[in-house]
Design a protein around this nucleic acid. Structure first.
Lengths: 228, 228
DNA sequence: GCAAAAGTGTTATCCCTACACCCATGA
DNA sequence: TCATGGGTGTAGGGATAACACTTTTGC
């Protein structure tokens, strides 16, 4: 027999896989891990791994993410479950996909324990991917894009305090379009999601800019018309 | 040993559970099954069941739905996976939740094979529920509500051909608010999602109403600004 | 005094909302 | 002829999109 955990009918394995997004080089980029073992040895894949039997799904995503990349305490949101029967050649595997957003300031992905190599990729220049990870990434991007405009998800990319110009740059990268400075400030301030910290910062060394922070950091990621 | 399917490390079981919505008695109602066995014997629960080892997740949802209720070919959309470690007292179970929408015309849920009893419940009068099904229902409702306004999901409740008044009634039930007839017609026709069948129908027997059909039945459920 | 980023208001347009009456038909 | 549901247009308000100049400050 293959092992010591036996069931009266066959059980699939369950994994959590995470699409980690961040902003690097003026682009939305995705973190991938080069696989060290079979199957798909040498291919790039999403960070992730098998669910411990007494572990919550989201905890599993958080743990795998930290094990493979060293980053922790990120915003995590479940995308959905992927379970095409032949998606893993070894055995039946159900993957619960998450996406995570890394604040720009915290971009120090150390090459971690068991993962051979980690790398950031622009979304239009992804390498060939293991399993059905290309599809998972497609779904994660779609969810992210759908929520960007009517949620505060983009704030996840920001440090604790930031200037409005910095926030605008983030939105311009995410929406791949130039935005009008006055309109951007009006709409973002009009929604009442930010408050001034009272401090200012002079980047480079020109006129100092006011710093803002998110008013309700615990509600970041919710859609604007979600129930309270 | 408990059985003949053995693995080198423990595997969870995987189920699909389905929140089936329809419109009955001028309300959005949910289909529940009374559990015949332990655990939660006698409790109401979502229809659903265990994933076959070589079966797609969505196929599993469709199959369980048909086995327990006799309805088939419904719109099915995955909500997300639920996997709190103790959510099922028997063993570790990951549930992949779906929601389904039943066209008003097709409301004939025959008491099916292994399920003891099936019943429709108004969402504000749900009975006590087994497992974490109350939470699953909450999430399914939220997803449904979020998509109603900027997708064609509501069309799933309609028969092949329908009048604008009938469609308006459906929206009024779903949004729990009266809508202006002229505004409703303007907006729904302006979006260009419907076309006249050319036929008319005299309900009761007054002036005949024009019949409409959905232009792209295969795209029902997509958000308006989804990529093509 | 000039280079570079910070900051600020007004106008036109579109979409959504509110609102009331005539039409066709069968009884 | 009347009761019932089918069908139609217009005006106001709010949000969005377009658009350019002044302020601050270090060099």
């Amino acid at each position: 027999m293959a092992g010591s955990y036996c069931y009266p009918y066959p059980h699939p394995a369950v994994t959590a896989d995470i699409a980690v997004f961040s902003l690097r080089q003026q682009q939305l980029q995705l973190l991938l891990i080069r696989r060290g073992g079979e199957p798909f040895k040498g291919c790039w894949a999403l960070p992730g791994g098998f669910l411990d039997i007494d572990e919550d799904l989201e905890s599993c995503a958080a743990r795998e993410l930290e094990e493979e990349t060293g980053v922790r305490d990120l915003y995590l949101e479940q995308v959905c479950a992927f379970g095409r029967p032949q998606r893993d050649p070894r055995e039946r595997v159900i993957s619960v996909a998450y996406f995570a957003l890394v604040p720009v300031e915290r971009l120090q992905v150390r090459a971690a324990s068991d993962a051979a190599e980690a790398g950031w990729f622009a979304l239009n220049a992804l390498p060939e991917l293991a399993f059905d990870h290309a599809e998972i990434i497609r779904m994660a991007r779609q969810r992210l894009a759908a929520k960007l405009d009517d949620s505060t998800l983009a704030f996840q990319f920001m440090p604790k305090a930031f200037t409005l110009d910095e926030l605008q740059q983030v939105y311009e990268i995410l929406r791949q379009a130039a935005l009008d400075k006055r309109d951007f400030r009006n709409s973002v301030l009009h929604r009442g999601l930010l408050e001034e910290t009272g401090e200012t910062r002079s980047r480079g060394n020109r006129r100092a800019a006011r710093l803002y922070r998110v008013k309700q950091p615990d509600r970041v990621g919710y859609t604007f018309n979600d129930p309270l």
